[in-house]
């Protein structure tokens, strides 16, 4: 019988896109002038900043437990942190997001499966996180894959 854990319930929470966080994040990514990007976007609200493209993955800190989806499974004892590898990340953007918006984030485990490779058994966790604007519009989707080494040829 497979020991693959059951998929947890999706986690949903609010993610306020703060001006200060957008600026701090942009500066940390070596953007010399965070106001520049929004000022060149036609539909940017006045005085707003563009949310950096990869900032959505940091929304997990706004979740009720402050954990990322894989962090939640580690805490639950379903994943061994020491055997974990980061796989592919994929961002789909529908439109730019600006500071001042409040997004609704839904984190879910889309798929979990084992694969036997020449290096042993690997367990794949495919998470999908969707970000909806206040009017319900989907603005961004992030897919992340984490891989847990379950066993190797050498045991």
């Amino acid at each position: 019988m497979s020991d693959i854990p059951p998929k947890p319930e999706p986690v949903r929470f609010r993610f306020p896109v703060e001006w200060g966080k957008c600026r701090e994040f942009s500066l940390a990514l070596l953007d010399a002038d965070p106001a520049q990007a929004a000022s060149t976007a036609g539909d940017a609200p006045p005085e707003s900043l563009l949310m950096p493209a990869t900032m959505p993955v940091c929304a997990s800190r706004y979740s009720p437990d402050g954990l990322s989806p894989i962090g939640r499974m580690i805490e639950a004892g379903q994943v061994d942190r020491r055997r974990l590898l980061q796989g592919e990340l994929e961002f789909d953007f529908v439109r730019p997001v600006y500071s001042g918006e409040v997004l609704t984030v839904t984190e879910e485990l889309a798929d979990i499966y084992d694969k036997t490779t020449s290096k042993g058994v690997l367990r794949f966790f495919e998470f999908r996180t969707s970000y909806h604007a206040a009017d319900g519009e989907l603005v961004c989707t992030v897919r992340t894959t984490n891989i847990e080494r379950r066993s190797s040829q050498n045991g």
Binding site: F25, S26, A28, L29, L30, D31, Q36, A37, A38, T40, A41, G42, D43, A44, L50, P52, A53, T54, M55, F91, R95, P96
Partner: peptide
């Protein structure tokens, strides 16, 4: 993240 912002700065924010 730097890659993402570099692409947006080049192609346009949207």
């Amino acid at each position: 993240g730097i890659l993402g912002e570099t692409l947006r700065a080049w192609a346009g924010p949207a």
